[in-house]
Amino acid sequence: CGTDVSSQAQRCRHRYDHIDLPPIRPIVTRVELYGGRCRGCGKRYRADAPAGMAPGTPFGPGIRSLLAYLHHSHHVGFERLSRIAHELFGLVISEGAIANAFRRMGAGMAAATKAITDKLLTAQVIASDETTTRTNGITHWQWVFLSDQAVLHKISKRRARQVAEGVLGGHQPDVWVSDRYAGQQELGREHQVCLAHVLRDVQYAIDCGDRAFAPKVRDHLRWAIRIGKRRQSLKDTTLASYAAKADNVLTSLMRVPIAHPAGKVLLKQIKAWRGKFFVFLTNRKVPATNNISEREIRPSVVFRKVTNGFRSDWGAQIHAGYRSVTGTARLSGQSALSAIRDLVDGKFAVA
């Protein structure tokens, strides 16, 4: 009606947020270093550069960290990185400049990887896995080794046992967790095989027609895994009785006559790995499966599928270092972008 209500008491009738991003543009700082010739000694002199703005690459740590984050965490190729920088941030940077920015991270990556390796070798339980990658069009292998405090990625030309032995350097953890690949056997005092992989083989025997032996093994392994998920709420004596029961039941299942060929193959496999199924029921720190390694190496598998690998050996090593740094930082709750920024700033430290 047009009445003046400015002097009346009012209360909030509607509340909402409006969120937007301002245009993002790089901050360019021109640095001029003055100097001259000393009248006393006759030598030329020049002022020192401001801290963090030494001559060399014009791109600061924020830009280098973001480029590494987008490339290695989100699988953005060099050409698209250059376009994103120009179209989204108003930053003109070539693919060659991006490559040079990554190459300069090599020394920091090497130092961080050394610290992560030292931390890894203090662990009592180490899990590991490997997958293929491509470097210069040649198949290489990307390994991952992890504990509850460190994650180490390593890209090697070989899948052989010597890769893991080279990382361990004579160290032998209490328990090694992996699949049943021969190159990862006898690296720890005890070995927990991944029961998820075993269940896959059991399911294959069921699919082939074994209806007597394989289903019982499947049910028994699933039972053991469920017990493992409740370990923290169980007393030591209770857990020990469950471990004994798991072993005894599996022994009794193996004594039953088996007629189906697929069941016989499965029985042979179980006999080969007989003592490595239920270590997790005697050690609370040991997982029943190797899913932690599978999850850690999965982003690199996606990276390989999107980018088709690496064009240089140094590029592969930078990726392995990046995955090691960000994987280790994630264990302490730090984001990948924050971790790589700390690395570029020379502040990265293993907790």
Rank of each mutant, 00 (worst) to 15 (best):
C1P: 12
T3N: 12
R11H: 05
C12M: 05
H14C: 06
R15C: 06
D20E: 13
L21K: 06
R25F: 06
P26H: 03
V28M: 09
Y34E: 14
G42W: 15
R44Q: 14
D48I: 06
A54D: 14
G56V: 02
L67S: 07
L70S: 05
H74S: 07
S82P: 07
R83V: 02
A85E: 12
E87Y: 08
L88A: 12
F89H: 09
F89E: 05
V92S: 09
N100D: 15
N100S: 11
R103W: 03
R104M: 13
T113S: 07
I116A: 03
L120I: 09
T122R: 13
T122I: 00
Q124F: 00
I126A: 00
S128N: 10
T132Q: 02
T133L: 08
N136S: 04
T139E: 13
L146E: 13
Q149H: 14
A150M: 10
V151T: 13
H153N: 04
R159W: 09
L168T: 10
P173W: 01
V175W: 07
D179R: 00
D179V: 00
D179P: 01
Y181M: 03
Q185H: 11
E186K: 15
R189G: 05
V193L: 15
L195K: 01
H197Q: 07
V198A: 10
L199F: 10
Y204T: 02
I206R: 10
D207E: 13
F213T: 02
K216M: 12
K216E: 15
D219K: 12
H220Q: 12
H220Y: 11
L221H: 07
L239E: 09
A244F: 00
A246H: 12
N248M: 01
S252L: 14
L253D: 03
P257I: 01
P261E: 13
A262S: 14
K264Q: 15
K264F: 08
V265Q: 10
V265L: 07
V265F: 07
K271P: 00
W273I: 00
W273L: 04
F280E: 02
F280K: 04
T282V: 00
N283V: 01
P287G: 04
A288T: 09
T289V: 04
E294S: 08
E296W: 08
V306W: 07
V306L: 07
T307F: 03
S312T: 15
A316G: 08
H319Y: 12
H319W: 04
R323Q: 14
S324T: 04
S324H: 01
V325D: 11
G327I: 02
T328S: 03
G333H: 09
Q334L: 10
A336V: 07
L343I: 02
V344Y: 13
F348Q: 04
A351S: 13
